[in-house]
């Protein structure tokens, strides 16, 4: 179990991780930003994921949208699962105050017995910042400070609870810019990519490894990726429409994301193998249609076709 691993010597820990990294893990996203998903559905996805083959459940974060709060959702999932990792993919850090975010994350880590992976990024949606009452323009600088503060709080005695994972929840940083990779090297445990074909992941992952090495960090950064699926023709249409809507604010980029939607077993397998070859440690596949049959289909593909 994770808790045991991290209490070992640093070098031993590294070798365990690198052994594990030759076999990529696959997680499943919860439909927490999809309209049709209610609390029952979210929890039953999480409950099923706990039995495998998925190793993590992921949640999205968007304030001005009809989705659930990521950390509150994971807290609920913690209560109905025992094994699966609970991942935010990705939470916009600077939308939130440092101390409140630190406490919430430590809480989820603590009640889940050390299963939280906290993926953080800047978040590009100005309206989310406006509604949260957080300033948008200096969010990069605040983000770096926040990452520093999170560790300080998790390792300090003032603001509890004490996270179960030593040094706090596994901290992944997302984004594409140079400062992103500086943050990975300076503050993070790894990098979480924002989605795209394996080759796009590979390029960014290489930057993350290079920044890690240049920063003089021991071992390797954890590398996470994610993708979207909608299996079946009907679902594919719905899924595309959802992605174009969800990412509408990004212009040409929404097109790119919608185009990458995985709609057949073959596409899923190609994608999963591509990520594995690119050195990804954990890939989370997110549904774009809130329907339990989507879960069934993905589970079947991974159980029967992969490995």
């Amino acid at each position: 179990m994770h808790v045991d691993v991290i209490s070992l010597e640093a070098d031993t820990y590294r070798s365990i991780i690198s052994l594990a990294s030759s076999d990529m893990r696959v997680g499943i996203g919860l439909p927490n930003t999809l309209d049709a998903a209610d609390g029952d559905m979210l929890l039953s996805w999480a409950r099923r994921a706990d039995d495998g083959p998925f190793t993590s459940v992921g949640v999205f974060d968007r304030l001005v949208y009809h989705g659930t709060d990521p950390l509150a959702t994971l807290a609920a999932c913690a209560g109905v699962t025992e094994e699966v990792r609970l991942a935010t993919s990705i939470v916009a850090g600077p939308l939130r105050s440092d101390a409140l975010l630190a406490k919430k994350a430590a809480t989820v880590d603590s009640i889940s017995d050390g299963r939280l992976t906290l993926g953080l990024a800047l978040g590009a949606r100005r309206e989310d910042y406006e509604e949260a009452g957080a300033s948008f323009n200096d969010r990069g600088r605040r983000f770096s400070r926040q990452l520093h503060r999170l560790r300080e709080i998790w390792e300090g005695d003032d603001i509890g609870p004490e996270p179960v994972q030593e040094g706090g929840p596994e901290l992944l940083i997302g984004g594409q810019s140079d400062p992103t990779f500086q943050r990975v090297g300076r503050y993070g445990d790894g990098y979480i990519h924002g989605g795209g074909p394996p080759r796009a992941f590979e390029r960014q992952a290489e930057k993350a490894r290079a920044a890690w090495q240049e920063s003089g960090r021991p071992g390797e950064p954890a590398l996470w990726g994610h993708g979207y699926f909608a299996l079946g023709e009907e679902a594919a249409e719905l899924g595309r429409a959802y992605l174009l809507d969800y990412y509408e604010f990004t212009g040409p980029f929404a097109e790119r994301i919608a185009e990458g939607l995985l709609t057949t077993p073959q596409e899923v397998l190609q994608f999963v193998r591509g990520y594995e070859d690119a050195g990804c440690d954990e890939l989370i596949l997110f549904p774009t249609v809130a329907d339990m049959s989507q879960y069934d289909r993905l589970e079947r593909i991974l159980k029967n076709e992969w490995r």
Binding site: A10, R151, E155, G167, G168, G185, R186, G216
Partner: peptide, 9 residues
């Protein structure tokens, strides 16, 4: 501190 959880702490 050692660099397991980040630089320059």
């Amino acid at each position: 501190r050692d660099r397991h959880h980040g630089l320059d702490r």
